[in-house]
Design a protein around this nucleic acid. Structure first.
Lengths: 223, 223
DNA sequence: TGCAAGAGTGGAACGACGTTCCAGCCCTAG
DNA sequence: CTAGGGCTGGAACGTCGTTCCACTCTTGCA
């Protein structure tokens, strides 16, 4: 196949799916989902829309490739010699931080599941849960639940983060929500009314890890 | 305010935000997010685009209202006299089934959080976790994690469900994924290779409930 | 009763988007 | 040296969200 030589000889900055995905990720990070445009992408790559379509099927394909790229980079470097619990925590935090750094990934995960990196996550969680002593009949359900928990909660967090990513302050936004919650009335919403004050001060990352730990405690306590 | 009389006198089928949201939900259920169009909505309501914009700010506003409508209907009827665990399960299943029935809600939750129905869910889970004996310092984190878990996992499930909602068979789709997983090679993916066979046969609803139960077990075992 | 004002409507028009199409480039095989 | 195809760049098409405006109908006021 002469394609490889071809590409390199063609242009110094030859077009390729990797370069397109890379540029797409930069645009998505900069301005969210709406900022990714084939026209903008073509301009950034100094080419035309048609050239991009030679390497990428359509926008959904491009978004899927970008999502896979981000998640894959977050999961590949897993060092599993720190014990099952810490390994699971490390993988989960890697996914969480990746989605937190690229909030559009969260929304994409809710649209297109079964990304290419999913088996990596599944393998990491499943093998460690097995090492943790989870019996065989519960292993599949437990692993599925943990994977969905990590992806889902991280996506929820990214959705929240997008609110105060646009320049507004995080504490200010959460403070506004807390005020609304506090106004709900203690008779019908006693709990919400009470914990509203804790909303602005909490740490999302710590809360995420606490959730994973609660889940792990449940898994190990179940047998 | 004469608006109410106004509306009823104006047309027999007077336009209102409720009727617009109702029609939007029907269109979203029928064909997913791409099927919701202001032109289609105008035709279905026998009016023009401008009339819709009088009641709705923009498409995001309409999607948020539709999402809120679905979630609110799923949470409102909570009978809480069956014990904390069962009450939590009931609320969680209500959210799960609502998102399962309206898969576009899952994608919407990942884009716009803090829906109006969120305090209801928070109140339900939080008060029941308190009744379950969760100590005060852990209550906020535990409730947040549970809410995010339910919303996130239900959204993940809906994303999967949309794959085989377009006419293709569920078992066939999962069978294809299972084949890919089984081909991954037992040396690098021993766990994925092994559990691939369980993929097509599992029940999403049961697995979701199992995840909630594992979480609850962790919460009660933590003290 | 007549009339100005405004709530509410319907559809034309605008700009931007995803996507398709195609004429042409340049490299390579023969 | 030439034919063919991988690859490019940009014009063009149809559809979308949104805006704009002329218009209708009702209501409050004189």
């Amino acid at each position: 196949m002469t394609t490889r030589q071809h590409r390199e000889a063609r242009r110094a900055d030859a077009l390729s799916k990797e370069r397109i995905v890379e540029a797409a990720i930069e645009m998505l990070d900069a301005g969210g989902e709406k900022a990714l445009t084939f026209r903008g992408l073509a301009e950034r790559l100094s080419t035309g829309s048609g050239a991009i379509y030679w390497h990428v099927a359509n926008k959904d394909d491009l978004l899927a490739a970008a999502t896979d790229c981000v998640i894959a980079h977050a999961v590949t470097d897993v060092a599993g010699d720190a014990g099952p619990r810490n390994t699971i925590r490390t993988i989960a935090l890697g996914v969480f931080d990746a989605i937190d750094a690229h909030p559009w990934v969260g929304a994409q995960l809710a649209r297109r599941p079964w990304l290419a990196a999913l088996p990596h996550i599944f393998e990491g969680f499943g093998s460690q849960l097995e090492a943790l002593g989870v019996p065989e009949p519960m292993l599949f359900d437990s692993t599925s639940a943990l994977v969905a928990h990590v992806l889902g909660v991280a996506g929820q967090n990214a959705a929240n983060g997008r609110l105060y990513a646009q320049g507004t302050d995080r504490v200010a936004v959460l403070g506004t929500v807390a005020e609304q919650w506090a106004r709900l009335g203690p008779e019908r919403f006693p709990f919400v009314h009470r914990v509203a004050a804790q909303l602005p001060g909490h740490d999302d990352r710590v809360q995420f890890l606490a959730g994973v730990d609660l889940f792990l405690r449940g898994v190990t306590a179940a047998h």
